[in-house]
Amino acid sequence: MKKLTLLLVSALLCITSTFAQKSNDHKDIKMYEQVWNKILNEAQIDLINDENFDPNIIQINTSGNIVGIADFKTYYQNYLTGFSDIKFTVIDVFGQGSKIVKHWMFKGTHTGDFFGIPATGKSVALQGVTLVKMKNGKIAQEQDFFDNAAVMQQLGLNSNPNNMVIIDKLYKDFAAGDMPSVLGAMSEYIGWNEAEGNALAVGNPYIGPEAVKDGVFMKLASQYDFFKLDDLTLHEMSNNEVFATMRYMAKVKKTGKVINLQAAHRWTLDNGKITRFQQYVDTKRLAEADNE
C-alpha cells in the first residue's frame, strides 16, 4: 500500500510539473506574439524595453550580433522607417521550455530608408523562421532565417536569375514565329519604344502586347521578305534588366535591299513579365534601305 501511494504521488507530481511547464510555454508564446504584433503592426517600437526583453537581448546576425536593448531597438526601427502598410503575420508558432520557433510573413511597401537603402516604392512579401530563447518571461535571444537575396530582388536591387531565361525564350519564340508566346511574355502594361528616327517610332510608346503586335510585328511582316536576328548575345544587368546585342538581317520588300547592321535591345522585367523595351539601332541605315 505504501509503494502504491508513493507511485501515485510521484505520478501526480509529474503530471503537475508537465502541466505547469505547458502553461508556462503557452504564457511565453502568447506574450511573444502580442509584443511583436504591437511592435510591427502598430509601430509601437518603444515596447522594445526591459519589461519585454532581457537587458542583454541578442539578435544573432551573420554580419555581426546585435546585443542590448538600445541596439536591438535601433535595428528594428529600420523596418518601421523603411516600410509602410506593414502587415506582420505569425503563420505558426510553437515552443518547449525556454525555446520558441516562429514561422512568419512580413509584407510592406518600401517608402523610406531601410538600412541605408533609399525608398524604391516596391512591395515586399517575405517569409521566414525565427528561433527564440526566453528567460524569466522575457525575450532573450532571436535568430532570423530568411532569403535576403529575395528581399533585394523584390526591391529591384538584385535581378531575378530567371530574367535571362525569359528573354532567351522570347527570342527563340520570335525566331520560330510563335507570336502568342512572344506576346505572352509581356506585361499587359508593357511600354515598347523603337529607336528614335526609326519609322516605327511614330507609335512610341506602344502600350500593351496588342499594340506591340499591331504597331511593330505586323508592320515588320509587311515590310520585309525576311527579318531575323543573328549573333545574339544576352547580358544580365542590375535592376531586373537584360541587355541584348545582335545583328539585324533582313530584306526590304519595296527596294530589295538587304540589311545587315548592329542593334541592341534593353529589356526591363518585373515578377517574370516584360514591362519595358527599348531598341537601339542605326536608323539612318534603316531609312537608306527603305529608299529606292
Score class of each variant (00 low, 15 high):
residue 118 P to I: 10
residue 27 K to W: 00
residue 240 N to S: 13
residue 253 K to Y: 11
residue 1 M to N: 09
residue 110 H to G: 03
residue 184 G to T: 03
residue 222 S to W: 07
residue 105 M to D: 05
residue 196 E to F: 04
residue 36 W to D: 07
residue 179 M to A: 09
residue 45 I to G: 13
residue 271 N to C: 00
residue 202 V to I: 04
residue 14 C to V: 15
residue 160 N to T: 03
residue 4 L to Y: 04
residue 57 I to P: 06
residue 262 Q to F: 10
residue 268 T to G: 12
residue 243 F to L: 15
residue 37 N to V: 04
residue 111 T to G: 06
residue 132 V to M: 01
residue 239 N to T: 03
residue 220 L to N: 11
residue 275 T to C: 04
residue 107 K to Y: 03
residue 131 L to P: 04
residue 143 Q to K: 09
residue 16 T to M: 08
residue 6 L to I: 09
residue 270 D to C: 07
residue 45 I to D: 07
residue 205 P to A: 09
residue 214 D to V: 02
residue 275 T to R: 04
residue 69 I to H: 12
residue 21 Q to G: 01
residue 116 G to D: 15
residue 44 Q to A: 14
residue 150 A to D: 05
residue 177 G to K: 06
residue 72 F to M: 10
residue 245 T to V: 14
residue 231 D to H: 10
residue 192 W to V: 07
residue 49 N to R: 09
residue 119 A to V: 01
residue 251 K to I: 08
residue 99 K to I: 05
residue 162 N to A: 15
residue 271 N to W: 03
residue 288 E to N: 12
residue 10 S to V: 10
residue 22 K to Y: 05
residue 71 D to W: 03
residue 284 K to D: 11
residue 120 T to C: 12
residue 244 A to S: 15
residue 210 E to R: 05
residue 229 L to G: 08
residue 237 M to N: 07
residue 150 A to E: 00
residue 265 H to T: 09
residue 273 K to R: 14
residue 291 N to C: 10
residue 123 S to N: 11
residue 44 Q to T: 06
residue 103 H to V: 01
residue 162 N to G: 05
residue 117 I to D: 04
residue 254 K to D: 14
residue 144 D to G: 07
residue 226 F to Y: 15
residue 43 A to Y: 01
residue 177 G to A: 11
residue 154 Q to K: 03
residue 68 G to C: 12
residue 240 N to L: 06
residue 135 K to T: 04
residue 99 K to W: 00
residue 97 G to Q: 06
residue 287 A to M: 15
residue 227 F to G: 10
residue 37 N to R: 03
residue 168 D to H: 12
residue 117 I to Y: 04
residue 243 F to A: 13
residue 260 N to T: 03
residue 42 E to K: 14
residue 135 K to M: 08
residue 48 I to G: 09
residue 287 A to S: 15
residue 130 T to P: 02
residue 280 Y to T: 09
residue 256 G to M: 09
residue 52 N to E: 11
residue 41 N to W: 02
residue 233 T to V: 14
residue 94 F to E: 00
residue 147 D to Q: 00
residue 218 M to D: 12
residue 71 D to R: 12
residue 134 M to N: 02
residue 175 A to W: 00
residue 168 D to Y: 05
residue 205 P to I: 04
residue 41 N to P: 06
residue 6 L to R: 07
residue 94 F to Y: 01
residue 118 P to F: 06
residue 42 E to T: 01
residue 67 V to W: 02
residue 102 K to V: 06
residue 47 L to I: 08
residue 263 A to T: 05
residue 28 D to F: 02
residue 278 Q to P: 00
